[in-house]
Write a protein that binds this DNA or RNA. Structure first.
Lengths: 298, 298
DNA sequence: ATGCATTGATCGTTTTTTTCGATTACTATT
DNA sequence: AATAGTAATCGAAAAAAACGATCAATGCAT
């Protein structure tokens, strides 16, 4: 059919040893095998590479060129093998990770330096988008992994939960609930609730958490990032819900806003990680998931 | 044992078609064969290149790198094949040709342009040396071909005769033999014969031609090229023998020297070409030999 | 000269690998 | 629920590779 890498190896061996039998020994085959292989190669190339002489093996002028090329090929093959070798240890290569916008700025940045030190060869490409679009990209292969809020319909994906992320109510300093230790979900029913735009899952989770429908809503404005919402609260436009993750990342800064937990707890979102069931790098993703779940507290 | 070129071809085919069955068809094998080959390759690399999904075939991030490398390798293999292909037509590559000094300057130069036009890819490396040294280099493989005067002991070589090269006696204008139509060999016995240095075969042939031994010689001086001998004759230091080849190449110039053939002819040297019996380019050398033997008269 | 040692080519046999065709398992679509 | 499409898998057949033994040619030592 075609020439083989084995033939090229034998070829180089003969050139190195200038001797069929020695080359055969060094290649761990018998001389007849090597002899046949060289013959076959010469037949396929249509030219003689070696000039056999009972006394010595000479390389023809063409042979020299062929040898140069053969060594190039073998070198490239070596490169291919080491390329694969480098990939074997977990998280040692490219990882295209999609994250939802209400997680991205808060979860990953604080751990990037730790990630880098533990998986020095990892090249992380981050893509921030809303859950539905992340799923599309995961399905078509343009993302390897997504981090989003659960539950979310993820057909053919393997999903692990990374953590639970409590919601807090964020109030302006002079809000009437400012003295409360904690806030009951129903207490928010009359408040002006500030939400993200349509499509952000946090919007739905917040509505869930407050037991309200968007129809009977008192939503007065929609922001496109949590930072915007915080600014709006600071300007007395209403209240909002913030995930602990964002709070931990100091989203409030020096706004002086108040944070109240929900009474009794349990008002939260689950953060999960998902990948295609068929993805061969599953084990690596598990490693990464554990790393994220056990991240050092900030 | 190792990865094969075939596997890499299949790999690229699957990447091209994004489909095992189509790739298999395009590669003229069954799907099971191709499937097994890809599996085997992935096993050898220790990493998955494709992510199989009942719906589609995705290339893993590593897979992309592997594919790039695979295409490089296949490209280099192609280069190797075309390298060999270029070599196939006769006299299309390097030829290391050794020539004796009494032939080199006269035989080859006039035909170089014809050679070039007929064998445009031929790269001729010329080496000028005395017969014995040419033989050594031919034996050790540093020359492919030699042109020298016959007979000459050439063990393990194949030899062809290119041409016969008549000797002429070269006389100063006022020499006592100047009126002779032709010269008999014995007539030179008393002359001062100018010869090349020891080692030049022409020296021996000239002595042969004159039926004299070096012991009873009247050699007065030894030159190291035919041009030198001509100059010496022009200075009345004696007579010499010149091969027709040198005469045809106008070695006399405007010296006004006389040339006399030998009486009855048959005083000549044979010019031959030789190469190792084992040299695979034998056929090309025959082609070249015919070209030289049938060279257009100058 | 003559016998011996070396070396690559060659041959027939055995072993291994490859390839194939058929089937299976799974999925998405109708 | 049925169907069409797809890659994996399995056992059998075919092909290729590898081996061991032998041969032929050569150079070297006796």
């Amino acid at each position: 059919m075609s020439i083989t890498i084995k033939q090229l190896k034998y070829l180089c061996a003969v050139a190195d040893y200038q001797h069929f039998t020695k080359a055969a020994d060094a290649s761990f085959v018998t001389q007849s095998t090597l002899s046949a292989a060289i013959n076959e190669l010469e037949l396929q190339l249509g030219v003689k590479v070696f000039e056999r002489n009972k006394r010595s093996v000479l390389v023809t002028p063409l042979g020299k060129k062929v040898l140069v090329q053969a060594r190039i090929i073998l070198g490239e093959v070596e490169d291919l093998l080491s390329l694969a070798e480098d990939f074997k240890d977990p998280l040692s290569s490219e990882l295209r990770l999609g994250v939802i916008p209400t997680v991205g700025p808060f979860l990953l940045p604080p751990m990037l330096s730790d990630l880098r030190s533990q998986f020095s060869k990892l090249k992380l490409y981050l893509k921030e988008d809303m859950s539905a679009r992340l799923l599309t990209q995961l399905q078509d292969g343009s993302l390897d992994l997504v981090i989003l809020a659960l539950p979310f319909e993820l057909p053919n994906m393997e999903v692990v939960t990374l953590m639970s992320d409590d919601f807090f109510v964020c109030l302006p300093p002079e809000h009437c609930l400012k003295e409360a230790e904690s806030i009951c979900q129903d207490e928010l029913r009359g408040e002006d609730l500030l939400l993200l735009e349509e499509g952000h899952c946090l919007r739905d989770h917040a509505l869930d958490a407050c037991n309200i429908e968007i129809s009977d809503s008192n939503v007065v404005y929609e922001g496109n990032s949590l930072h915007t919402l915080v600014q709006m609260v600071a300007n007395n436009l209403g209240v909002t819900l913030l995930p602990a993750m964002a709070v931990d990342a100091n989203i409030l800064g020096d706004t002086g806003l108040q944070l109240k937990p929900f009474t009794g707890g349990g008002v939260n979102r689950k953060i999960g990680m998902a990948w295609r069931q068929t993805d061969p790098r599953r084990d690596e993703y598990i490693v990464l998931a554990k790393f994220i779940a056990n991240r050092p507290t900030i």
